[in-house]
Design a protein around this nucleic acid. Sequence first.
DNA 1: CCGCATCCGTAACGATACTG
DNA 2: CAGTATCGTTACGGATGCGG
Lengths: 144, 144
Amino acid sequence: MTREAPGNLGLVGGEGIETCFERWREAGHDMNRCPVRDVLDHIGDKWTTLVLTVLAGGPHRFNALDRMIPDISKRMLTQSLRNLERDGIVERTVYPTKPPSVEYKLTPLGVSLTGPLHELIRWAEDHHEEIRSGRSRYDAENAA
Amino acid sequence: MTREAPGNLGLVGGEGIETCFERWREAGHDMNRCPVRDVLDHIGDKWTTLVLTVLAGGPHRFNALDRMIPDISKRMLTQSLRNLERDGIVERTVYPTKPPSVEYKLTPLGVSLTGPLHELIRWAEDHHEEIRSGRSRYDAENAA
DNA sequence: CCGCATCCGTAACGATACTG
DNA sequence: CAGTATCGTTACGGATGCGG
């Protein structure tokens, strides 16, 4: 028992939440490519979650997405969509109309993501005020 | 009906997943401070999720965390912990021993986060290989 | 309509050295 | 032991303009 306070999770059930990168390290892999980072990096960047959120509502065309996410730039929208497409989360379909139209929709893999993601967003909404007030208090205490 | 393809969510139940920032915008608030961004910004940064993951296993001291997350620097560990403390997700307790020891543990708010977070991590583990192979295929196709 | 290319400022991150 | 301070680099993101 080399680890201190190995503890037990207060979680639902099954194995520990940290097994994910524990296993990764023990397997001698690059820590930067453990599943948590590989997936959460995308979740965490500024726009991907928002794009996913919109696409969960149904397929949309490029400019529709652009309008629905008011302050995103075309550059960032493209980049986010490309990453999601690369990961197999979003499917891109080009209709050779004139002018061309491109539709983006979630793949089955993408749909399977919406569940967990929704949970997290729900949590964010539910506790947003609590967090904001906590921050104010913290900042006030450390103003002196 | 100004929006195209308003669609319906294939989600569990309740209101749409995108209501979160829809409401935010309609209320005339700053989009950068909608709940999704306010919370997910932290989830997404390089270390916070990992720290949370470890703390879900029980309280730990600073250097213990440092050792358990092999490639984190003290600087980043401190920063991540401070942010989490500020948000009321982590509690910092100083024991005035000599030398001093500081313990970090999840608050009730933090514990409530572990559920949704765990779901997401589980998803990441389950689909990691699928994503990686998808990337390889995508990259191969776009190599020409 | 749907992008891509370029430039550029900022902020995140990493490494290192130092303190109570 | 538990941090802080400083510096350099790199990656992210915004603005703009062009092309198919």
